[in-house]
Design a protein around this nucleic acid. Structure first.
Length: 291
DNA sequence: TATGCGTGGAT
DNA sequence: TATCCAAGCAT
């Protein structure tokens, strides 16, 4: 096997030439704009995030601006991005930044990961992309690139294992600026070339040293990768219920919510779970509104 | 570790 | 049409 350092130069050169000019990259970006983008990009494609990100940054250009607004406004402005708990958590994170960090997005991983809605990936991403710090940034793109290029497998295991993290750590460039570029470059390579389906190996800068290509691109044979169901699930009902309230000016009477789903028990369960999650509040005997 | 959590485009 | 997938997090 070639030394792992052989991967760095071609990937970094490829990124320098092919990186997308996204609003949360480059000189115009702030730590806050990076943070907003990372929340929105959790399980959501870039093309759908772009317009929402612009709207949010125009309306709430700083963490304090968002923190000073109602959390319900964040949920409403989240629109149809999906997983609206992210909006609630981003608002809560903004409150924590205003109250505990002087209104400035924290720079350290340890401070970031304490914020609501910020896990290992997002903390590392903000620390790396916004502050130039040296961290292993292990998202689904990076995991897939390393699984193929180094491990010779089509897909990584369902969850991050110790060996996988150790591999990513061993590949991380020593100096912080290069490590940060390496992180975003491997993510970009996974997003644009080394995709989950139909990877474009002909355009890949490391195809000549890719273990998976060398092995003849064998099909994935690990544990079954489960795809979540949608039709008929509580998630679908929750989505319909919240959409009604989101698109209404004020509180919504229960009888309007009754119309979005015929199964009474499931509808009530979904409604109750939205209240538990804090996405809806019961404001009158039988009315519901955003928080 | 396994599960639940939205939405919509691509194949 | 049904399935897969998209920069995860919290429990």
């Amino acid at each position: 096997m070639r030394g792992v350092s052989d991967l760095h130069s071609p990937v970094l050169a490829w990124y320098d030439e092919h990186a997308r000019a996204l609003p949360w990259r480059g000189n115009g970006a702030t730590a806050w704009s990076v943070m907003v983008s990372e929340f929105m990009l959790q399980q959501t494609p870039v093309v759908r995030v772009l317009p929402m990100h612009a709207q949010w940054l125009e309306r709430w250009p700083t963490p304090t601006a968002l923190a000073d607004d109602d959390s319900g406004e964040a949920v409403r402005a989240w629109g149809r991005l999906g997983y609206p708990r992210r909006a609630l958590r981003l608002h809560a994170a903004a409150v924590a930044i205003r109250d505990q960090h002087g209104g400035q997005v924290p720079e350290s991983y340890d401070d970031l990961v304490e914020l609501p809605g910020v896990g290992d990936y997002t903390a590392a991403a903000i620390a790396s992309f916004a502050h130039g710090r040296r961290h292993v940034v292990l998202d689904t793109n990076v995991r897939r690139v390393l699984a193929r290029a180094v491990s010779g497998e089509e897909f990584p295991p369902p969850s991050v294992r110790k060996a996988e993290r150790e591999l990513a750590t061993s590949l991380l460039p020593e100096d912080a600026p290069t490590a940060a570029t390496w992180a975003v470059a491997t993510m970009e390579l996974g997003a644009l070339v080394c995709t989950a389906t139909n990877p474009d190996c002909d355009r890949c800068p490391i195809t000549d040293r890719c273990a998976w290509v060398a092995a003849g691109r064998p099909a994935y044979d690990g544990p079954a990768r489960k795809v979540q169901s949608w039709a008929g699930t509580d998630r679908q009902v929750r989505g319909r219920l919240l959409a009604v309230v989101r698109e209404s000016a004020g509180a919504v009477p229960r009888r309007r919510l009754d119309q979005v789903w015929t199964d009474d028990a499931q509808r009530e369960r979904a409604l109750a779970s939205l209240v538990v999650d804090g996405l809806l509040v019961r404001v009158e005997p039988d009315h519901f509104a955003l928080p």
